[in-house]
Design a protein around this nucleic acid. Sequence first.
DNA 1: AATATGCGCAACCGCTCCGTG
DNA 2: ACACGGAGCGGTTGCGCATAT
Length: 199
Amino acid sequence: MGRSPCCEKAHTNKGAWTKEEDQRLVAYIKAHGEGCWRSLPKAAGLLRCGKSCRLRWINYLRPDLKRGNFTEEEDDVIIKLHQILGNKWSLIAGRLPGRTDNEIKNYWNTHIKRKLLARGIDPQTHHPLVSGAAANAPSSKRPQEQEEQLAAAVRSSCSPETSNDDSASVPHPHLGGIDLNLSLSPPSQPSSPVTAVAN
DNA sequence: AATATGCGCAACCGCTCCGTG
DNA sequence: ACACGGAGCGGTTGCGCATAT
């Protein structure tokens, strides 16, 4: 309904990023930090949409990214978290330092889905395929509810700081013994990621 | 060696959420 | 209380590479 586009499409590049564009973006964020994405491209001298810059930075250029293969342990964490959160990739990514939501989403769709299907498990419901997959998907909950559920799980079982009984060492029952450190924290620590860039 | 097919990753698109005036 | 704009998220697509035929 007449919503203004996020950028002037006629004057923006699309498709794969060039080395020069990457360098410009990195240099700008090093110097100024992650500010207003909408105005960043112009300020940085890039013919890109702000959203595109943000995505490129978060998914590829951020200095704290791990990259490389997922470990078995990470696989497991993703599966467990997906069981609780559903397709909330950003929340899942927040529990896996160095991994991005896009990366996890891709990994889920290409590897884990197949892995679960091979085990006879429905990747959406995490229930056995044979029984009618009419189970309620976890993603039907609102994000806030999910966070609250996670926080509650932490308080009741995973928080060594706040709990004063032995349950601190007992992970969430759904999590199969994995300590997920489900504290409510933003995916990427805002402690000046710019300064994390090696100079 | 050439071609076809499948797979994985990077990027785009559109929608929703959230903050601000 | 409402409208608007920006940021963030999830789904989907397209391209390039690897493998099979």
